[in-house]
Computed example of a mutant assay.
Amino acid sequence: MSKLLVTGGAGFIGRHLAAELVARGHDVTIYDALIEQVHGEGAADLPEGVEFLRGDMRDAERLGRALAGCDAVVHLAAEVGVGQSMYEITRYVGANDLGTAVLLEAMIAAPPRRLVVASSMSVYGEGAYRRGDGSRAGAIRRRAADVKAGRWDLSDDAGAPLAPIPTDEEKPVDLASIYALTKYAQERQALIFGEAYGVEVVALRLFNVFGAGQALSNPYTGVLANFASRIASGAAPTIFEDGRQKRDFVHVEDVARAFRLACETPGIGGEIFNIGSGQAYEIAEVARLLAREMGRADLRPEILGRARSGDIRNCFADISKARERLGFRPEHRLETSLGPFVDWVRGETVVDRGAEMRRHLEERRLVS
């Protein structure tokens, strides 16, 4: 048995991870600020046997108490949301970057053996692409003029189309949003700290996580949760661009297992791993699958034909490294996991804030 601290542990991923760790015999402390946007009026039920301490990531004294005697730390605490990060910049940089800095400083007196930090696929910007001749394209972004004209897919300098391929950890970082910037800063801070203080740091770049327990009232995170909130409220799910953009959806129980493996697997200090399903899904098709599962196949996705600032076109995971080094193998596919997800949604109070989110972005000219 070892003692672990999970920051942000009362959140969606954190609760599943805490249950996973307790089941493996670990002693778990959760540290969480219980932000209303994520948690509503209070924390959801936490796994039996965990210790809970409420506090902000920038409260060094309280963090120090939470860290006492910990062998390992999993750092999940963060503000999450590409769109919101583009206008609540101080909030995201303060919570994510400054919060991580305070955590690292609090560790100096008695560094843990290992620190596992939650990073994000957003740090890649656009995923990896292949040219028509089969060669891999270098770092590439969409041109603003193409996006404004509704030319969503990427092409090379000669105008030839590029094909998306699985993104591995060697793909260069290209930060397209404030959220991505803060996640990369968290990742790099932790890795630099680890080298200086002899802490084994592991960064997990998470792709789109879904499953029971995701906040249904927070329109800035969780594509599947946002779609479910719309459908449960009798409204069509709304999708930016043309709905053919591709993402990787990974189940929260698989993600929890990945974090547990990152805590327990020897010899991986300083490493970065993609955590996804290894599958690519078109967003509009995901919306249609969910609507059918919820008995509302009549609610066809509303395709907006407009782009949101900070969004990318395609990114889905190559998880070869996580398979080989962590022994990580996803056990839940999106297609076979929608039933249990829908059963959970039906037992929840749903608040659809999708229209509110769109209004906030449009008022700030972040939708084109």
Rank of each mutant, 00 (worst) to 15 (best):
L175Q: 08
Y179P: 10
V199K: 02
L181Y: 12
L191F: 04
T182I: 12
V202I: 03
A215V: 06
A160E: 15
L191T: 02
W152V: 12
R188V: 12
A139K: 04
V209Y: 09
R188P: 00
I165C: 13
P166S: 05
D157H: 11
S135C: 05
D133K: 08
G150P: 05
V173Y: 15
P166Q: 12
R205S: 03
I140M: 08
R130G: 02
Y129S: 01
K183S: 08
V209Q: 04
V117R: 01
A118G: 08
V123F: 09
R136L: 15
A118F: 08
F193D: 02
E169R: 04
S177W: 02
L175P: 10
V116C: 01
V209G: 03
A137D: 11
P164K: 06
G134V: 12
G198I: 07
F207Q: 01
Y197N: 09
I192A: 13
Q214H: 08
K148W: 11
V117S: 03
D133H: 06
E200I: 00
S120H: 11
E200R: 04
V116N: 00
R151N: 07
T167M: 07
G138W: 15
R188G: 00
G211L: 05
D168A: 05
T167G: 07
R131I: 08
Y184C: 10
V147I: 14
E187D: 13
P219Q: 01
R131L: 13
L154Q: 01
Q186R: 15
E187A: 12
D153A: 15
G213H: 05
G194K: 01
T167D: 07
L206Y: 10
K171S: 06
Y197W: 14
Q214N: 07
V123R: 02
D133R: 09
G150F: 08
D153F: 15
A180L: 07
I192Y: 10
R131P: 04
V199E: 05
R136H: 12
S135Q: 06
A196S: 04
G211N: 02
L115M: 11
V202D: 00
F193A: 07
D157C: 09
E169Q: 12
R130N: 09
P166K: 09
L181G: 09
D174A: 14
A137G: 05
L191K: 07
G198H: 05
P172G: 08
N218F: 11
F193K: 02
S217F: 09
K148R: 15
I165A: 13
V199A: 08
T167V: 04
E126T: 00
A158H: 15
A149P: 03
R142H: 15
A139P: 02
F210R: 02
T167S: 11
E195H: 08
V202H: 00
Y179Q: 02
A139R: 10
A190T: 00
F210Y: 14
G138P: 07
A185K: 01
N208A: 13
A190C: 15
Q189G: 03
E170V: 03
S217G: 14
V201G: 03
G198C: 03
S217V: 01
T167Q: 06
V117T: 06
G125I: 02
A196D: 10
L162P: 04
D133F: 06
S177Y: 04
F193G: 00
S135A: 14
G159L: 06
A212W: 05
R205P: 03
P172S: 09
G159R: 09
D156K: 11
L181E: 08
E170C: 07
D133A: 12
L204Q: 02
N208W: 12
S177M: 01
G134C: 07
Y184A: 13
G194L: 01
E195P: 02
